[in-house]
Nucleic acid binder design. Sequence first.
DNA 1: GCGATCTCTCAGCGTTTCCTCAGCCGGCGG
DNA 2: CCGCCGGCTGAGGAAACGCTGAGAGATCGC
Lengths: 221, 221
Amino acid sequence: MLADMRILVVDDERTLARSIQRGLVAEGFAVDLEHDGTAGYERARWGDYDAIVLDIMLPGRNGYDVVTALRAEDVWTPVLLLSAKDGEHDVADGLDVGADDYLTKPFSFVVLVARIRAMVRRPATPRPAVLAVGALELDPSTRQVRAGGLAVDLTVRELALLEYLMRHHERVVGKVELLDHVWDGEGEDVNVVEQYVGYVRRKVGRAAIVTVRGAGYRAVG
Amino acid sequence: MLADMRILVVDDERTLARSIQRGLVAEGFAVDLEHDGTAGYERARWGDYDAIVLDIMLPGRNGYDVVTALRAEDVWTPVLLLSAKDGEHDVADGLDVGADDYLTKPFSFVVLVARIRAMVRRPATPRPAVLAVGALELDPSTRQVRAGGLAVDLTVRELALLEYLMRHHERVVGKVELLDHVWDGEGEDVNVVEQYVGYVRRKVGRAAIVTVRGAGYRAVG
DNA sequence: GCGATCTCTCAGCGTTTCCTCAGCCGGCGG
DNA sequence: CCGCCGGCTGAGGAAACGCTGAGAGATCGC
């Protein structure tokens, strides 16, 4: 079952990288090492791996960057991020950006293996290039938005807001959550969110975003 | 964000359990203690916790056993296992059986807290998407409720009440218990509960919630 | 430097929601 | 038969919630 599972490990702490490699090899994986972001990215892009273990803090380009770039290049190899800190935002951001899982250092080796196995087992869900919810379409790469076929112009904030709502349209998204992810500020007033929901509604149509009183908003197109 | 995070700690080493409790309380969690597997299981099953810290070696039933039983009962509260030995296999077994994370004793308290936070944050274990009791369906993520197929609109309080009743539909739920869990207030009047049961009944149908005189309510759909 | 654009704060408004109060109903025990 | 207790519900005021117009800084291009 593990025959021919190829894993790329990108971490600049060479001792740690080595020991991860040794451990994974003992588990039957074929493991390649890389020690900086740029090289890691190139290798991940062409290397045909089954999984990538990626440190966030890296020389060259950081982990988020590498994942974003890979996903933009249509490389959907499962990525497990290694994070030195355990602040909430970096983890959430990593997952947002297209990583599949994460671990906080220091981590247990057994857990690492379990996570990798789970990740590989689980069918990779390539994110579609453009988001579509009902009559709404949003292409993150070109920043173009169409509502019911016709193009609308959104400012940066408006777009970020709509994109987040569309990425999570299957559930109700709370205002504080939006504040966290779209405004990445802490002590702000949720009224900004309301104001911007208003702006977006005026541009894409009132019905595209429904208010769920006491809970938040939901994109329905 | 930590407001109202309830944690159950099950460990037969009372000194250790106490000190974990003290530490977690200082971190802003509400913590209950239990010292053997059987009691721990019962409490975990009914207690509506946000996370469970569970020793593997326990009198009564062991940790694996408890997790397995909980998962079988459809309780998906995140579980962190505490293992005394650090052979790898027992840990892997624990994760296989449905635990979310584990720590080997002795562990650092900071790590424990970080793991708990991570566990609670991430929807690791698949919680079944919708609750269903008789003709009632409730989807917590979209906050949608259907009674006999047709959608009904509930306010925040009404929804919380119905959700609690549905999550515990196999037994009668007392008014004071509802006051505790749905209103998280102390010295309130149970009349609020009666009032809201009335509201919900009007919306989802009179028969969905039966009154058990002198005892409380029960969701039957 | 100056206007245009964008972002965010503030205050006010109408509406919904929440909770309290008080009266009502109905079963049950005396 | 009557009174009591537990449960139910209509009414209404207070508070919370969500939306929006106005406008002040900030930023950017010209």
